[in-house]
Lab assay of single mutants.
Amino acid sequence: MAAGGDHGSPDSYRSPLASRYASPEMCFVFSDRYKFRTWRQLWLWLAEAEQTLGLPITDEQIQEMKSNLENIDFKMAAEEEKRLRHDVMAHVHTFGHCCPKAAGIIHLGATSCYVGDNTDLIILRNALDLLLPKLARVISRLADFAKERASLPTLGFTHFQPAQLTTVGKRCCLWIQDLCMDLQNLKRVRDDLRFRGVKGTTGTQASFLQLFEGDDHKVEQLDKMVTEKAGFKRAFIITGQTYTRKVDIEVLSVLASLGASVHKICTDIRLLANLKEMEEPFEKQQIGSSAMPYKRNPMRSERCCSLARHLMTLVMDPLQTASVQWFERTLDDSANRRICLAEAFLTADTILNTLQNISEGLVVYPKVIERRIRQELPFMATENIIMAMVKAGGSRQDCHEKIRVLSQQAASVVKQEGGDNDLIERIQVDAYFSPIHSQLDHLLDPSSFTGRASQQVQRFLEEEVYPLLKPYESVMKVKAELCL
């Protein structure tokens, strides 16, 4: 049975990233139509530049190519590739079939990587351009969430054990800070992308030097003109047959890092959902379990974690691919890159769409948070109580021993009897502590235990987050809708 299948058929496997999760716009960027249309555009740009620099290419040939950029006979191309065992030459023939007058000058002087690699770089750039505003929107939604809850005390956790208090907004800023680093890295790697350009079979530009009869300047002009037509500021000066596969490492490393950030955020949300302090959106008709109707599973956060793990592992592909590119190139890269580049971007696209949807509907339960604080705060307040007693004339050592005994009794009630923490009640009825009984409410005010959390939130948002989001103001209103 021949390899390949009808990918629109229910009898043929289709990647869930495309069929179930990723956005239509990201799927289109990695589609065959987008790819092969870009090949034709690159052939047109090459012909236009070659004509401008004096090669015998007519206006009629150029116009014929322009008129057929979208006229792609995919069936013919597939048949040609089956016959020739070469995808680029299959599309040269297919393009030439609908451009008979231009057929002889299509791909003039070029090698397969002229269309293959340059198209990949265009796709990487455009895919990054799709991700950047999506990530900015996630940051914006979380920034709104953090600002609104900047002063809401909550129990902090280290080692997932109760620690000092923080605020809900401050905790959210930990998430935002990681995503801001990801946004900066995505922008950097996007701006650092260079075009492969017009380089020939081993990167020496020998074929173009021959076409222009040894004119170095025209060869350099050709490279520059096509690079500018493709919208790049610069091209690699040095290439082998391909652009260095280190570029793929750079791009997928940034995406993998984004995956790590999203995994951490969504894990926190899942843990908070278990504590009943916070939940992701839950639709009115949504079913959490087929057997347990009360369940409210954090399905979206779980999906993000599941896909983020996949995204983090994909960076190993370009690392290994770059390491086995012998001399000017081997074909070890080809099949692998067809999979890992598309999957990385479709996965990143999915987790950003999902995280935006989550961040637009996060639900906080202040009463649950308050109750958990009441359970733990008495123990945390013991040092403040000791200091207040010393100020009232008591002995630190005597007070410490009193607190120690009462704390152990209260802990026994919590752990052995399943009761509430009654340390404060014990202190309130103990005559030894009568000098500070009137101060206990103040000493137990949760806001006095959150330090500068709310001020940190305000400063972080104003100095770091809002300036970073400013270039994306025009796209901030787009909502994230999930079908599944």
Rank of each mutant, 00 (worst) to 15 (best):
A3D: 15
H7P: 14
G8P: 12
G8C: 13
G8L: 12
S12A: 13
R20D: 04
F28T: 10
S31T: 07
R33W: 14
K35W: 07
R40M: 00
W45D: 15
L46T: 03
E48G: 02
T52R: 11
G54L: 05
D59F: 06
Q63T: 07
E64K: 07
I72N: 12
E79K: 06
E80D: 09
D87W: 11
V88D: 01
M89S: 04
H93W: 05
C98W: 06
K101L: 13
G109D: 08
C113D: 00
N118Y: 05
D120I: 06
L121A: 09
R125M: 11
A127E: 09
L131Q: 11
P133K: 13
L135A: 08
I139D: 04
S151R: 06
F160K: 02
Q161E: 06
T166S: 08
T167S: 13
K170Q: 10
K170N: 04
C172I: 09
W175D: 06
L179K: 02
M181K: 13
L183W: 09
L183R: 05
V198Q: 10
V198G: 13
K199V: 10
G200P: 01
Q210T: 10
Q210R: 11
F212W: 14
F212Q: 08
D216V: 08
H217S: 14
V219S: 05
E220G: 11
V226S: 01
V226H: 07
R234Y: 06
I237E: 08
I237A: 07
I238M: 08
T239A: 08
G240K: 07
T242R: 02
T244L: 06
V247N: 03
S253C: 13
A256H: 05
S261F: 00
K264I: 01
L275F: 03
K276I: 03
E277P: 00
E279D: 15
E279W: 06
E283R: 13
Q286E: 01
S289C: 00
S290I: 02
K295R: 00
K295F: 00
R296P: 07
S301D: 08
L307Y: 02
H310G: 08
M312Y: 05
M312A: 11
L314R: 09
L314C: 13
L319D: 00
L319Q: 03
S323G: 07
W326P: 00
F327I: 11
L331N: 09
D333E: 04
N336T: 12
I339A: 04
L341Y: 11
E343N: 10
A344W: 00
L346K: 07
T347P: 06
L352N: 07
E360V: 10
E360P: 15
V363F: 08
V368R: 11
R372D: 00
R372I: 08
E376R: 03
L377M: 01
M380C: 02
I385R: 02
I386W: 04
G393N: 01
G394R: 06
S395R: 08
C399K: 02
H400E: 05
E401F: 12
E401L: 10
I403S: 06
R404Q: 12
S407V: 03
G418L: 02
V429L: 14
H442N: 13
S447M: 10
F449D: 13
S454E: 15
Q455G: 15
E464V: 12
V465Y: 04
P467F: 03
L469E: 14
L469P: 08
S474P: 14
S474K: 05
V478T: 05
K479T: 13
E481S: 15
L482D: 15
L484W: 14
L484R: 14
